[in-house]
Write a protein that binds this DNA or RNA. Structure first.
Length: 645
DNA sequence: GTTTCGGTTCTTTTT
DNA sequence: GAACCGAAAC
């Protein structure tokens, strides 16, 4: 199949797609066809004779990678299939599974999600006798650890900074950190950060492995480069060291992940790092009407230290974005609902509209109102599909089968039994020498014996699953394991435990289906840990692509576009968030977030500015309009006032 | 000594 | 909605 690059791309895109070998930086402003450019670049390489399995495509979500691959396949055909595409974590995990032993892990290591991490740290704090009202909470500790790892600083230094004004011994925090590191090793488990750092360590320390991958990846493409942290930066640098064909795409204006160690200076400094780098700019915006782009251009102009880029509109004049002043959250909801119904009457599908916000809780009262008015919506909630209690319960049994040292899953599983709490679990866990192997009959009998009377009958049922796994090699059939677990035990448990049983039961059914596409437990568990909210949602309901309004945080809406966008709670303290303003360069990052949200809109943008919020205690909190709205030139906006404020 | 239950409090952003 | 705490129940 011949591809007509000249006609299907504009001059800016074409230049980037046809860039020669060597390092390339593509500065792609919002809505300028960044994805298109990457897809055509892949097609261009494959058509030029580069075998697809020598190309590496690193993206921000696995979904993005899949979409790009699908589009590339449409262009060039099945020969793109061997291409490696996915997130950094995905790639690192794949490399580690093949080489984990070199780092002292077993290949069946578990991946800890944030819930597991929290449980682990909580236990350590208790064990070290540090539990005290003034001692930082597990979440805070974990964010310090993670930030230190991802910015390659000492935990000590980050903690010193973070707790400057708190009466906390930094030494204690470091002790918790070391204990946490030890415990993970003992559990044969890695957290998200370990996956990246261990992969980097492996490549740095092992010449043979390093050279194998350096040889293999002749072309490396990196999407969203502005959101890479220094570990990811080093990974790319290392993998590209031999062939030096590294093409990175990004937009420093859209860097919104510095709180997890991302550093937009990676993209700013790319041309210094690679002196022979070719630089291309994409500035022609096909997405938004000029009125929206004016707002976007103006809001970002004040941020220092950036590549100068200007969004150029090609679309026709339309109308300026609205600033909507309302009283409280309910009036905000009323306005939005009216507008949505109006748009719907004009024939705009619901799924062309989005309601975006800074933090998940901003959307709560709106959800109630949407439900009441029967407006269909989908929400990417804060809790990920695979991290909901009932899903984790069902996965615990698979995880303990897979990794016998997985204490967290063992605890979780046994904790479901009646009359069994943390103490009993620990007693049993120690009794079997902290290893529960399905194949070890003695261990299984020991558990049986130690089980309190009340729990014995239930345990016997669950043990039957282990027996089946052992005898009939159910490891190849994750779907069957979950089915049995649910059938024999969990369904009944869920009826008694959850007041929203029907929904949870549906989720379990979906999980059983979802597992069906994996041939081994191993494969499924790998996928499980690294799948994002958006992807899980796709997986569970691909057949029911409903027409519904999307509710999402701005972070999760990255890369998406909608005809109409409503932005909630544009007040100082909510957006920009009060906490981020206390951080170094916090305001700049919030402003970039505002830039990201404005550039999601194609036709109409509604900036919602409530003036007060009722609090739990009955008091009322008043807000000033967001500085990001105030700094805009009034002539760029249309003002709407609604309700009492 | 443990588990379970009920009431209270709080919400940044995520691979 | 879920995490935490204290008190009742086993």
């Amino acid at each position: 199949m011949h591809i007509d690059f000249e006609n299907e791309l504009n001059a800016e895109q074409l230049a980037a797609v046809k860039a020669g070998d060597g390092p390339v930086l593509v500065l792609a402003a919002a809505g300028t066809g960044k994805t298109r450019t990457l897809v055509y670049r892949v097609a261009y390489l494959v058509e030029g004779g580069v075998p697809a399995d020598h190309i590496l495509l690193l993206t921000f979500t696995n979904k993005a990678a899949r979409e790009m691959l699908d589009r590339a396949r449409e262009l060039v055909g099945p020969q793109v299939s061997g291409l490696w595409g996915g997130t950094f974590h995905h790639l690192a995990n794949r490399i580690l599974r093949r080489n984990a032993e070199a780092l002292g892990y077993q290949v069946d290591y578990s991946i800890l999600d944030s819930d597991d991490q929290r449980t682990l740290v909580k236990r350590i704090v208790e064990e070290l006798g540090l539990k005290d009202k003034s001692f930082p909470k597990p979440d805070v500790l974990l964010s310090v650890f993670s930030y230190a790892v991802n910015t390659e600083q000492l935990v000590e230094d980050v903690a010193m900074d973070r707790f400057e004004n708190h009466p906390v011994e930094v030494g204690d925090i470091v002790r918790v950190y070391h204990a946490y590191e030890d415990r993970k090793k003992n559990l044969n488990a890695m957290d998200f950060d370990d996956i990246l750092t261990n992969c980097l360590m492996l490549l740095e320390g092992n010449e043979k492995v390093r050279e194998r991958y350096q040889e293999r990846f002749r072309y490396i493409l990196v999407d969203e480069y502005q959101d890479t942290n220094s570990i990811q930066y080093k990974l790319v640098e290392l993998l590209a060291a031999k062939h030096r064909n590294v093409l990175v795409v990004g937009d420093d204006f859209q860097s919104i992940y510095s709180w997890r160690g991302a550093d937009f200076r990676n993209i700013i400094n790319f041309p210094d790092k690679y002196e022979d780098a070719q630089v291309y700019k994409l500035e022609t915006n096909y997405r938004s009407v000029p009125e929206i782009l004016n707002v976007a251009n103006e809001c970002i102009a004040g941020n220092p230290e950036q590549f100068q880029k200007e969004l150029r509109a090609v679309r026709e004049q339309h109308r300026p974005p609205y600033v909507v002043r309302v009283g409280d959250g309910n009036q905000q909801a009323d306005y939005i609902i009216d507008k949505i119904q109006e748009y719907a009457r004009e024939g705009r599908p619901y799924n062309d509209m989005a309601i975006l916000y800074r933090s998940h809780f901003h959307a709560m009262e709106l959800q109630l109102n949407l439900t009441r008015q029967r407006i269909p919506y989908v929400i990417t909630s804060g809790v990920r599909f695979f991290e909901q209690a009932h899903i984790k319960d069902a996965c615990a049994i698979m995880r303990i089968i897979h990794n016998p040292a997985d204490e967290l899953s063992f605890t979780r599983l046994l904790g479901l039994l009646p009359g069994v709490g943390p103490k009993t679990v620990m007693k049993i866990w120690n009794l079997i020498d902290q290893r529960f192997s399905v194949a070890n009959l003695t261990a299984r009998l020991k558990v049986q014996d130690a089980m309190p009377k009340k729990a014995k009958p239930t345990w016997e049922k669950i043990d039957r699953i282990f027996q089946l796994v052992d005898e009939e090699n159910l490891r190849k059939n994750p779907s069957e394991i979950v089915f049995l677990f649910n059938d024999i035990f969990y369904d009944q448990y869920a009826i008694e435990t959850f007041d929203n049983y029907p929904r949870r039961s549906e989720d379990i059914e979906e999980l059983i289906n979802y597992c069906g596409q994996f041939d081994t437990l191993d494969e499924f568990l790998n996928e499980l840990a690294l799948v994002t909210n958006l992807e899980a949602e796709d997986a569970k309901g691909s057949e029911q692509q409903e027409d519904a309004v999307r509710l999402s945080t701005i972070h999760q809406a990255k890369g998406l576009e909608f005809g109409v966008v409503f932005v909630l709670w544009l007040t100082d303290g909510m957006f920009p968030s009060g906490r981020s303003l206390e951080e170094l360069e916090g305001e700049s990052e919030e402003r970039r977030l505002f830039y990201v949200v404005t550039t999601r809109a194609k036709d109409d943008l509604h900036l919602m500015v409530p003036s007060y919020r009722r609090q739990r205690d009955g008091g009322v909190q008043y807000y000033n309009p967001s500085r990001f709205v105030q700094e805009l030139d009034e002539t760029l906006l249309s003002e709407v006032e609604r309700g009492y404020f």
